[in-house]
Simulated scan of single mutants.
Amino acid sequence: MTTHLTGSRDEWLAARIDLLKAEKEFTRLGDKLAQRRQQLPWVRIDKEFRFETEEGDASLADLFRGRSQLLVYHFMFGPDYKAGCPSCSAIADGFNGIIVHLANHDVAFTAVSRAPLAKLLEYRTRMGWSFPWASAAGSEFNFDFHVSFTEEQQRDEGIDYNYRREPVRGWRERSGQEGSGDSAEAKFAAMTGTDVPTYQREQPGMSAFVQEDGAIYHTYSSYGRGMDAIWSMYPWLDRAPKGRNESSGPWWRRHDEYGKG
C-alpha cells in the first residue's frame, strides 16, 4: 500500500488547478528572466581566440558560421581526459538534435573543450552525435570564461566559478570530503579516465555571443546548476511521479553504458 497522499479524481483536479496557478506564475517569471538576460550589457571581445575545428583553424568569428548569434556549451573534456564527462554527455544528448533548428533561426551552436580535436571527434562518433565541436587547446578561451583552471589555481589559489570565489579545490580529495571512491566526483573522474583533481580542473557552463557591425560581444554565461535549464532529462523527470529521485546521488551514465553492470 502506498504511503503517498491519495484522493478522488475531483480532489486531484482541484489540487491540479491550484498547482496550475503556480505553474503559470513560474512561466511568467521565466519570461521576465529571459528578458533580463537579453537586457544585460554587451561586452566587446577584442582578444583573438583560436580554435581547431573540422574545417581547420578558426577564430571566434568563424564559429558563428554566418549567423549573428552564437551559443557555446563548455563541455568538460580536458586534455588528460580519456572520455567526456558523463554529465556533459547527458546534456549533449539533449541538445544534439536541436542544432538545425537554432541554425535556421540565426543562432550558431558549438561545443568547446580543451581536449585535442581528434579525441573530441572520436568520442562524438562513439556517442552518435553530429553537433560542431571545437578544440580550445592552446587557447585561453576556456580560462577566460572560467570553465578551465590550472593546477596551480586548484592547489594554491582557489578559482572564480559561477560568479563567486571558490576555495582551493584540490583539498577535497586529500581531506576525504570529496574524492573518496564512493563520491560522485570520484566516480565521474574514473569514468573520464582521470583522478579527481584532474577532473575538477574543467567545469561546465554555457556562453552566448553576438556579432554586430564587425564586432563580437559576450552577452551571457551560466554555470553550475544553471545547466539544469538546458539538461533536457530534468524537465521530464521533474514531471515524473517520483521526480529526480536522486537521494542516493547521481545515477546517470553515458547512454551506451546502461546495462553494462
Rank of each mutant, 00 (worst) to 15 (best):
E55G: 12
D160V: 15
D228Q: 11
S247N: 15
M76R: 12
D46V: 10
R36P: 08
T3D: 13
R9C: 13
Y217E: 03
D80V: 11
F26K: 15
A136R: 01
L33K: 08
F49C: 08
T110K: 07
K21N: 13
K187M: 02
M206P: 00
I159C: 00
L40R: 15
D46Q: 07
L63D: 00
V196I: 03
W42D: 07
Y81L: 11
Q153E: 04
W129H: 08
I45M: 11
L13C: 06
L40A: 15
A34L: 09
D46L: 12
S139L: 07
E140L: 11
I45N: 10
D195N: 13
L70M: 02
A92R: 00
P241L: 05
S207N: 04
R169A: 10
R201P: 04
S59M: 07
P250T: 09
N142A: 15
G170Q: 13
A108S: 11
K47D: 09
W12M: 09
M206Y: 10
F95S: 03
Y258K: 06
M227R: 10
R16L: 09
A61F: 00
R225A: 15
N96P: 02
E23S: 13
S248L: 13
Q35R: 11
D182I: 00
K47Q: 14
A34I: 06
E166T: 09
R67S: 12
S89R: 01
D46N: 12
W12T: 06
K242V: 12
K21F: 15
N96V: 00
Q203D: 05
E54M: 06
G214A: 01
D46Y: 08
T110Y: 05
A15D: 07
F95L: 08
Y123P: 00
R65P: 05
V147K: 04
R244W: 13
S175H: 03
W236C: 07
F188V: 07
Q177S: 08
D93P: 03
G224K: 05
L120T: 01
G30D: 11
Q177C: 06
E246D: 15
M76W: 06
F95R: 01
E48T: 11
N96M: 02
Y220V: 07
R169N: 11
A90H: 10
P235M: 08
W252E: 08
S68C: 09
G7D: 01
A83I: 09
G181L: 07
D195S: 13
E246L: 15
R36K: 14
G170A: 14
N104F: 00
L120S: 04
K32Q: 12
R254T: 02
D213Y: 08
F141S: 05
E257G: 05
E54T: 05
K119M: 13
A111W: 08
R37Q: 10
L20T: 13
D228I: 10
S175F: 00
P86F: 03
L71F: 09
I91R: 01
Q69P: 00
F131K: 07
L60E: 00
S180Q: 11
H105R: 14
W171T: 11
S113E: 01
P241W: 05
